[in-house]
Nucleic acid binder design. Structure first.
Lengths: 339, 339
DNA sequence: CGAACGCTAGTGACCGATCACTTTTCCCGT
DNA sequence: ACGGGAAAAGTGATCGGTCACTAGCGTTCG
């Protein structure tokens, strides 16, 4: 048994047993080169015998540099974040940082509090938030970057990308003969949800389309289901744009239950390209978001901020890619006419 | 405007400005009572003016007690963990601990390494793992508890619960006239996947059923899709048990594409009760897992270990609940041997 | 009235690492 | 053989808090 009596092994204990000074042991862990082979061997033996590992808390207190970044995830499961996290982690690692992914549960105020706590805790050098935060970054002693997907400011420029896709979708639907539209929105606390709604409404006006309006949703299947179920029978809606794939799934279910065929009577678009959408019947038309590109950009921005470097110029290609699957088709010829 | 020149504000600076000793400021943050109102007010004023918050790294170095627990999530999206995390967080908070949820990406070895690093970092008092870890808990200086869902040892006793559900499902299918079964398994690194497979095979023998065997899956929709697509046309399989809902969705898709009606020609069972399963067509028969109960139990066990208390006796009710939806029906051209 | 006690506040050591600086050792050229 | 300089190793201070102990002061009670 290595450690006896609940006593944590310290660098001094290792130094004592190896017959060297504590500083030499410290060097062993920070700059491997610059030690005589004999010395290194002595230390190595003791370290592996005691199974010693430096106390990172103590290290980071003295050294200031912890080499750790935190990625804040929302607790809502509306993100396919697995790939994204892998990418982020790898990128951070390549730059010499470790990425710790932290999920914070609770309402907006609690989450902002906890993030501020993380920021002032001294444990991290920078924070990357993947969810909206009602937080003034100036109150934080370390850089906080919000991903482009949710960042207000970035959306002023990123809006074009988002906008063009929503417009593209609607134009495509128009070319298939659709004329009456319906939008199931996401929570308006999310900039991305706000943006999609805004562009939807703008495009309706711009192209002179008819819209049955916008339903308030919350990303869930139920919200999509309810929205369609409450649609008047004579609304004439033939094209539905849902805020994400869950809502779209619910919408399709409700439509089928009302006896509307999808896509023969009504077309449905989702957003996010969740795994399940490919395998459901009908399979889901959706928008694949290149979250990797967004994440890459965000973490590069963060690392630059941590290092007090100039932020890298943002050069991303197309972020959103439209995927047409079975849930979208031509508008029914028989005009189920007006309200 | 608060902090000037990148200089972190320390407790001494606060003490100086408030005209008290650093220890008094420390008391202000640890034990609010025991300060004269006048003193407290002076400190409060300075604290809010400077926007000071204690450095948690320094605090936990001296105090040893960090009050923080880490919950390790797998990066695979096969868990509906949102509710669970809320529950865990609340329970921990009630016991005076803060729960930090950490997602670790990478293969098993990397993840074990990172967990060990977290354990020895001094930042946490205990670790709760929601994914399998190839790690010897004895190597960790702090308690590591794995949730019942994945823990080898617990499964020896928890197996009954799991087993009875798989058996119940199969018995139900038999009562509907099904005789030829097929199992799409999950990764065998997961104890839960192993257990389901084991019980499947046992029950096949026990009830004298015919089985087309077990396909190796990885929780994904694709693995379910491929498994069904590769099924020989004359296999005679009429009942499929998938390891989770994703695989089940893929299986249904493949079946439909081969011209098999679900559930008229073939019945499919999932596992996990994901949101989408309720809204897909056909809706998915599945098993709802009371992860909250599992999580509650696990975190209580962890906190007991951290405090060197006796572990609480495990008293959970039924964990798994079978949900029958449209994807399951009577066997085709029924030669029912029913009850 | 004084000793005992409780409450509030202060002093200096200490947690376990690294940093800055100093001392010792080693190697090499003349 | 020796001086010089680089490489290796050591010494003590330090990061920002809390802990253990002590000092001052007002209140209570014998």
């Amino acid at each position: 048994m290595a450690d006896v009596g609940d006593q944590r092994i310290t660098i001094h204990e290792v130094a004592r047993r190896a017959g060297v000074s504590h500083q030499t042991v410290s060097r062993y862990f920070t700059r491997i080169e610059g030690l005589k082979p004999a010395t290194r061997q002595k230390i190595e033996a003791v370290v592996s015998e005691l199974n010693y590992r430096p106390n990172l808390v103590a290290r980071s207190m003295r050294a200031k540099r912890t080499g750790r970044l935190a990625a804040i995830l929302p607790s809502t499961p509306n993100l396919t974040h697995s790939n994204l996290l892998g990418t982020l982690s790898a990128l951070a690692q390549a730059e010499g940082y470790r990425l710790e992914v932290v999920t914070i549960v609770g309402d907006a105020r609690i989450r902002a509090d906890r993030v501020l706590e993380l920021a002032t805790s001294g444990g991290f050098e920078g924070i990357l938030s993947l969810s909206p935060l009602p937080l003034d970054p100036a109150r934080s002693p370390i850089p906080i970057v919000t991903t482009a997907d949710y960042d207000e400011q970035m959306h002023c420029q990123g809006e074009l990308a988002d906008a063009s896709v929503v417009r593209d979708i609607m134009k495509h639907l128009v070319s298939l003969g659709h004329q009456v539209f319906f939008h199931i929105a996401g929570p308006q606390t999310y900039a991305s949800a706000r943006s999609r709604k805004l562009v939807y409404e703008t495009t309706v006006k711009e192209l002179g389309l008819r819209s049955h309006g916008v339903a308030d949703g919350d990303w869930t299947g139920r919200s999509g289901y309810d929205a369609i179920q409450e649609l008047p029978a004579a609304s004439g809606v033939t094209a539905v744009l849902a805020a994400n794939d869950y809502a779209a799934m619910g919408a399709i279910r409700a439509a089928l239950e009302r006896g509307w065929r999808v896509p023969d009577d009504i077309s449905v678009f989702g957003w996010d390209d969740f795994d399940m959408g490919r395998y459901s019947t009908p399979s889901l038309s959706t928008v694949a978001v290149d979250r990797e590109a967004l994440g890459r950009e965000a973490i590069q921005k963060l690392i630059a901020a941590v290092r007090h470097d100039e932020p890298p110029e943002t050069t991303h290609g197309p972020i959103n890619r439209i995927i047409i699957r079975e849930s979208v088709g031509p508008a029914p010829h028989s005009q189920r006419s007006t309200s």
